[in-house]
Write a protein that binds this DNA or RNA. Structure first.
Lengths: 194, 194
DNA sequence: CCATTACGTTCCAACCTGTAACGTAAATCT
DNA sequence: AGATTTACGTTACAGGTTGGAACGTAATGG
């Protein structure tokens, strides 16, 4: 059912019947639920449409494929704000670890990434969604005094993101404070100057 | 009786027509090719059989699922011998990096792990295939004098493997000696004692 | 009113999955 | 040699998923 709430369309004037925003919302919500419950593979567009109470053509009108739906469901939202650079290197690294853990601690995120990467040999998605948005902040963090020279920021970034991703992907707990502390400890020693 | 992988049970002489070893070889070869070319999802059993010039039933006689075929194609081969512990920590870490790069630097390996982790409830496979066989060697390497105490070996291994894995998954070169050197440098500083 | 577009329902061809049946080929056993 | 056992390819099947097309109905704007 369509609610005649008359939400105004910004930008181009709509000509025909406007798309129901509730369809978008319910589809994306259903996608996240299914990802967490049954994993990427069993999250079919058919299942998404059924759970959302929407027809399959309504889904295909908005997205071209399952990967498209999943990508928007997960990355359509804005990233959380990057933690501040405090000047305390160790403290900043810990904040970085916590931020990455927070983003990957959700099973639907892990399932989605594994599924997307297994489905599309799109090598750039990983970097675009995970690495690139954090690059400037990392440069600020590693630009602090106390960081020894010669540290490749790309490699360091891959070290951090890769470790957390791999741990979550293999089904191990990543929310344990002891893990964050251990990881921060290793990374701190890796970059701190003598 | 035969095992799921088709190997005859020891002691029981084969009675009927023996399985053609060429079928096994061609199927596993085709699997690796498809993984690298089109990714895990599009590597269907049907596509594997067609490329291998073999019928689908011949594949199903040997393996129960795509995950089964992929797992054997990648892990059925013998592991490379573990590098020796020389006593030179930096040298040993470099050997570790080279070994991990050699094992995970191939696109088909990354694709296979992504796909297997995305669809299997058995999240433990990763540890069974990579961590467990090298646990003792890892302990020996990190047990050397010069390594500061309190280093979690699991987290350390996740750092190394995760970094290489992520770099390959994002389509970046991992065979560059400069990369191995940079990675070794970071890991060495991460664990070396004061 | 009329054109345009969205929506749901109903279909469809194509592909992949497992499995089964059939005839043929290759081995062992009596 | 003949019988038995098993592998192989071919063909077929039911079930699921994928995209999309057709059709009638609903909701907007001109």
């Amino acid at each position: 059912m369509v609610r005649p709430d008359g939400a105004p369309v910004k930008g181009a004037p709509a000509k025909g019947r406007p798309r129901d925003p509730a369809v978008d919302a319910r589809v994306l919500e259903a996608t996240l639920e299914l990802l967490a419950e049954v994993g990427y593979r069993q999250t079919s567009i058919d299942a998404i449409a059924r759970r959302a109470g929407v027809s399959r053509p309504a889904v295909y009108r908005r997205w071209t494929s399952k990967a498209d739906v999943v990508a928007q469901a997960l990355f359509g939202r804005s990233e959380g704000s990057a933690p501040r650079v405090s000047g305390d290197l160790r403290r900043d690294l810990r904040a970085w670890v916590d931020a990455v853990v927070a983003r990957f601690g959700r099973p639907e995120m892990v399932q989605a990434f594994l599924g997307l990467m297994a489905e599309l040999p799109d090598k750039d998605r990983f970097r675009a969604e995970l690495v690139r948005p954090r690059r400037t902040h990392l440069a600020a963090t590693l630009g602090q005094p106390g960081v020894r020279p010669g540290v490749d920021q790309e490699v360091f970034l891959e070290l951090l993101v890769g470790a957390v991703f791999l741990r979550v992907a293999t089904g191990r707990d990543v929310t344990d404070p002891g893990y964050a502390e251990q990881l921060t400890d290793l990374l701190h020693h890796a970059v701190v100057g003598a």
